[in-house]
Amino acid sequence: MTCKCENNCADQKEQELLKIIEKHKGKKGALIPVLHDAQDLYGYLPLQVQKIISEQMNIPLAEIYGVVTFYTQFSLHKKGKYQIRVCLGTACYVKGSGKIYEELKKELNLSGDGTTEDGLFSLESCRCIGACGLAPVIMINDDVYGELTPADIPEIIKKYRDRKQGQ
């Protein structure tokens, strides 16, 4: 992986990845724990990371990619600075979270789950996040927003956009 900054953080990350693999290597069912830790490290599981795991663990890349795409918890795409999760579980959905999701897509100019071009936001639909009493619910990083209507969305997003400018 090529890193634009000067302090070799990509190499550092790769060293950490190798340590993660070393920790789990040889154990039965080691792949999924390695993928979890690798995703925590990188935020997602791009080709380069999967290739390192494949070579080090002697598991074909195709098999790894099959596992990564089977489980929704793994991501192939870089997440935004602010990760928005929209609950489309039953309780939220009947309370109109589908419309919230549509509004977020419009606001972020995305066609579905994904990351905005500036890398600031990523949108992800998910199942229950355990706050059904507040339905419909979204989370932005660790902040929870409940009892939403589509009209609330632009202001919430603006708050995070302004935060970026403020920094």
Binding site: P60, L61, A62, E63, Y65, G66, T69, F70
Partner: peptide
Amino acid sequence: VSAIETNER
């Protein structure tokens, strides 16, 4: 060879 696999779900 494992050039192909079952992907997604």
